[in-house]
């Protein structure tokens, strides 16, 4: 069970979706990233997650070797 005390819904969701990787992607701060969750073994090893904005409703695989530093639809997660 995840302790929810004092967390905003967004912070809680971040705990549920605790990512597998760390990198310099701006996407980590972005509302639209759906990260590869810690411990999941299925998705290809070289992505940090999926961008749910740029090609929505399709998901764009955000590669971990192409670090996104700037993005035209970036939205700070709340």
């Amino acid at each position: 069970m995840i302790e929810a005390k004092g967390l905003t819904p967004r912070q809680f969701l971040d705990k549920v979706l605790e990512p597998e990787k760390e990198s310099d992607h701006i996407c980590w701060q972005c509302e639209f990233l759906k990260p590869v969750i810690k411990g999941s073994s299925f998705p290809p090893a070289d992505i940090i997650g999926w961008c749910m904005k740029i090609h929505w409703p399709y998901y764009w695989c955000v590669a971990d070797f192409n670090v996104v530093k700037k993005c035209y639809v970036f939205k700070q997660k709340g």
């Binding site: 995840i2 929810a4 819904p9 809680f12 969701l13 549920v16």
Partner: peptide, 10 residues
């Protein structure tokens, strides 16, 4: 209740 991503938030 308030559930987020299948987890109980509140």
């Amino acid at each position: 209740i308030h559930m987020i991503q299948g987890h109980m938030y509140k």
